[in-house]
Amino acid sequence: MRRIAIFITAAFVALALAGCGANQTTQTGGITVRDPWVRAAMMNVAGDQSGAMGNMGQSTPMAGMSDHGHGSESSAVSAAYMVLVNNGAADAIVKAESDVAKSVELHNVIMENNVMQMRQVEAIEVPANGQVELKPGSFHVMLIGLNRDLKEGDEVTITLTTRSGKTIEVKAPVRKP
């Protein structure tokens, strides 16, 4: 009887340990990224060789409305989307970096009564063995103040940092808006 109890305890301990081990190993494979993409965006008109606008580059008539800004400079922005798949314990993306923009932030969009509200978030939580889709109208990696044009076919490198301290390098192709 006692032997059985010991055996059962041992089995539980072993299971618990195995559980730990399993967590550890999947942790290294924790969050992975699927189907990343970045929305195409233009930095400067002169660089736009899309042809559709033809001579638009030369003339930028601003008719006295060029300077609405009070130090809030206009800058091109874009967003990156992807699916975060988590094979391990609950984790989160807490930071995103890229050389493509001056600021790279984690954002979400909330829709309330058909009013769109975009907000910066501290983290994008990814549940254990679950996934989160970054998509238009929802979570996204916001690229603010683009350093260059994002043209279809280009590739943008984004580095994500997880709460567990891992970094994930994402190569996201640029797609048409």
Binding site: A40, A41, M42, N44, V45, D48, S50, A52, M53, M56, T60, P61, M62, A63, M65, S66, D67, H68, G69, H70, S72, S74, A76, K176, P177
Partner: peptide, 24 residues
């Protein structure tokens, strides 16, 4: 209106359809 300068609107809308008009 502060940030949607004509220049930015041109680039932004041209990416979709050059006939789209952006008003400010």
């Amino acid at each position: 209106p502060e940030r949607d300068t004509p220049d930015l609107m041109q680039r932004y809308l041209a990416a979709f359809n050059p006939t789209f008009l952006g008003l400010n």
